[in-house]
Amino acid sequence: MSKKYCEKFKIPKHLEVPMGAVIPAPVKENRNMITGNWRTERPVIDHEACTLCLNCFLFCPDACWHLDEKEERMVWNADFCKGCLICVNECPADCLTPVNELEFKGGVVRLEKPF
């Protein structure tokens, strides 16, 4: 119940909470729900072979591939990629390779407290 409503009807202070749940809308990413730590494998890109066809950008359910238009290369989002490997499956240039997280020094399975 809102503060105004509580004062008007003399409702105890502990019931003073906003109407409904008010949560901020994320702008670029929802940092409160990091999903990169689900991953056991990650897609690694060979930029030389990439044709910028944008398949990975279109088909990633977690919106983890984007085109950097200035650099003309695809950018991957390590904090949120769940490692489903749809992008690897749909890359027509075969320039994405799944690599086990254990291969990386900072791989999520090696982190004591992932993210």
């Binding site: 994320p26 670029k28 990413e29 929802n30 940092r31 409160n32 729900m33 990091i34 999903t35 689900w38 088909f59 990633c60 359910p61 977690d62 919106a63 983890c64 989002n77 904090d79 949120f80 769940k82 490692g83 489903c84 490997l85 749809i86």
Partner: peptide, 15 residues
């Protein structure tokens, strides 16, 4: 519809 949700890996409805 931004990154940061608990749908399963490869979820079709999320796509």
């Amino acid at each position: 519809y931004l990154p940061g949700h608990r749908t399963c890996q490869g979820c079709g409805p999320a796509l």
